[in-house]
Amino acid sequence: MALRATIYKAEINIADNDRGYYGTHTVTLARHPSETDERLMVRLLAYALWVQADERLVFTRGLSDTDEPDLWNLDLTGAVQQWVEIGLPDERRLLKACGRADQVIVLAYGRGADVWWSSVRNKVSRARNLQAYVLDAEATKTLAGLADRNMSLSINITDRSAWVSCDRGDISLDVRSLLESA
C-alpha cells in the first residue's frame, strides 16, 4: 500500500520591507512521503519570498509530478508566468522551464548547493529569464525544526534576509544570489 501525503497547514504573516508588501496568507501543503521537513519549510519560505509579486503563486503537486515545479503562477490563459524550483535541479529541467515560463526561480539549499551551482552555471548562463538563489545549509536545518502540522509563522524580509519566527523558535536566513535575470 502506498504511503499518503501528510497535510500541513500554515498561517504566514509576511512583512517584506524591501518591496513594501505586508500580508497574511493561509496555505495548505501536502508533504510527499519522501519529502523532508527541511524541503517542506524551504518551499514555504519560497512562497513567502515571491508571493508579493502576484498572489496567484500556488503550490503544485511538486514531487508527485515531474512536469510541474514546486510553485508556480499561471495567468488566466494557463500560461506559466513564474516557475519556482526548490533544491538542486539539473540543467535540462531548468532550460525546459525557461522555455515554458516568463520567469524561472531556483532556491537551492543543502550541503551540495555550491557544487551543484558550479556544475550547472555555464550550461544555464544563456537563459535570460532565470534567477538562482542559495540558502545556507545549517540555517535550513534549523528552519526544519520549526515545522509543525499546524503552524503560525511570521516572516520578515529585509536586505535579502528572511527572519522566520514562531512559537517553536526563530531563525535568520540569508538569501544569497547566484544569478539574476538579464
Rank of each mutant, 00 (worst) to 15 (best):
A127V: 06
L178Y: 00
Q82Y: 03
I105W: 10
Q82C: 02
R128A: 12
S165H: 04
V106T: 12
K96D: 05
I157G: 01
H32F: 01
I7A: 00
S118G: 02
E35L: 03
V134S: 06
A147K: 08
N150C: 01
L44C: 13
V42L: 08
G78R: 05
I157E: 01
V80D: 01
D70A: 08
N13A: 11
N73D: 10
A5I: 01
D67I: 02
R128F: 12
T28L: 03
N156C: 05
D114N: 05
H32L: 00
L88E: 04
S64N: 14
I171K: 14
S64Q: 11
G145L: 07
I7N: 02
H25I: 05
K123N: 09
R121W: 04
D65V: 02
R100E: 06
L49V: 03
I12T: 08
P33I: 04
R4V: 07
W50E: 08
T158G: 02
R100S: 04
E85F: 00
T6L: 05
L173F: 13
R93G: 02
T6V: 13
V164I: 15
M1E: 07
E38H: 02
Y22N: 11
V106F: 05
T24I: 14
A30E: 04
N150T: 10
I86L: 03
L88M: 06
M41Q: 15
M1T: 09
L57C: 01
E91D: 14
A113Q: 04
T28V: 13
G87K: 05
A113R: 12
D54F: 08
D148W: 07
E35G: 01
L179V: 05
S119H: 07
E138R: 14
D174C: 01
P69K: 11
Y109H: 12
V51T: 09
T77D: 13
A147M: 08
E11A: 13
V51Y: 04
D90S: 07
E38M: 09
K9R: 15
L76I: 14
G99R: 12
R111K: 08
A139N: 11
R19M: 10
S177L: 10
Y47R: 03
